[in-house]
Design a protein around this nucleic acid. Structure first.
Lengths: 221, 221
DNA sequence: CTATGATTCAATCAATCACTTGAATAATAG
DNA sequence: CTATTATTCAAGTGATTGATTGAATCATAG
């Protein structure tokens, strides 16, 4: 019992770790951290086939990281526990601290310079109230439509160039995307800074902003 | 670049998650959280063959969770970063919160009752100073010999029965082992409570106690 | 009750993993 | 230099994983 209980526990931990050890599943979890979703929506967002997506979701469910409920003929998945987001975040931190491979990719985004310090949510809220900042939402249009920070301008990385001419050069820009796993905001900030803009990225993403109960503009579902 | 950079980052995170997804490697990390060690010592502690242990260690090194240095003809491995311990701990918490399978094993240890609240390190230190507590070190003898909490009594689970008759029934007992991954202390406390003793387990284990700079009795190396 | 549509299951294949065995490397003792 | 000891490498085996395809399930609409 002594050793076997320990092994059984370890196998439980391993089940969770295994669930996090496929890029497809990390993408699914990132997406589910935004909002609960059906299989088809998740498949489209992640670029997986529906059957494959379904199987990854079931693997996540086996590890109890997600739960599902039926809504008509659709199955809706959601995160079981917000702790999972913390776990993914810590996974990211450990990887970024230790893995040269990851560090290099992040450096590439910033063209060798150090990443600028992120803007805290409290600071952004304050500056939003003053109106002394432009907020950029670098997520797909449908996610922007569902919910966004008030007065945020929606753009994608590829459309950013078109937006450049109309942006004021003397006002700070704060970009955000989905959250810590999402690098759209980083890439947008890097591109903006290259053009001479005063750009920063928001700490975390929309889910974190929302979780703090901050002001939000909700669209039609 | 946009998508491929993201995929490359995800693969980095996956590398770390994969490193945590084998029981053997979790055992190795738990052991390395105690102290840096050579391959042979680790193999013996974990019950792995030396070659197998070496390969797991290299997998951990590939994920940059451990680093190695040479000492004479021995390779000494140690944790790269204390954050890894946090990551393992959070992995444990998520698994225990969500996985019925894990919860059941823990319940089995406590015979269906809820686990008693652990004793904080501050509280134990205070009561040690008063002398109003018996401390039980439920780790293998060699680890006890290397370092232990002052005045702690060393025992193993199998030897616990022999110790029972000599223990005072009117004094609280606090048991500890390696840390959060180690369930010896839990099992010892459960056994003691079954016999009517006032037993609790220490929050964390010896590494945590040590990390706080608390009093410790160090043996010969 | 039958048809429809969303999701899951089942079967398959290539790739990877954990483990074992035996040989190869590297540092020290004699 | 040679023998010894600690560790790693290399090759092989069985088991598991991720992805694909097509069939099967299940709740609702008609």
């Amino acid at each position: 019992m002594s050793t076997s209980a320990k092994m059984a526990l370890l196998e439980g931990y391993v089940l969770v770790a295994r669930a996090l050890s496929a890029p497809a599943r990390l993408m699914l979890l990132e997406q589910l951290a935004q909002q609960e979703s059906g299989v088809e929506a998740l498949a489209e967002k992640t670029g997986l086939t529906i059957a494959n997506c379904s199987q990854h979701l079931q693997q996540l469910r086996r590890a109890a990281l997600v739960t599902s409920r039926r809504d008509g003929k659709a199955m809706i998945y959601r995160l079981t526990d917000a702790k999972t987001i913390e776990l993914m975040d810590l996974l990211r931190v450990v990887a970024e601290r230790n893995l040269a491979q990851v560090d290099r990719i992040l450096r590439d985004i910033w063209n060798g310079e150090d990443a600028p310090k992120p803007v805290s949510r409290a600071e952004l809220a304050e500056r939003l109230a003053e109106g002394s900042v432009i907020v950029l939402d670098v997520r797909p249009a449908d996610e922007y439509a569902a919910a966004h920070i008030p007065n945020a301008v929606n753009t994608t990385l590829s459309d950013l160039d078109q937006l450049l001419p109309v942006l004021a050069t003397d006002v700070d820009i704060v970009a955000y995307c989905r959250g810590p796993y999402c690098i759209y905001a980083h890439q947008a900030v890097a591109a903006l800074r290259k053009q001479g803009f005063q750009a920063h990225h928001l700490e975390g993403g929309l889910p974190e902003w929302r979780a703090e109960g901050r002001d939000i503009q909700i669209g039609v579902t």
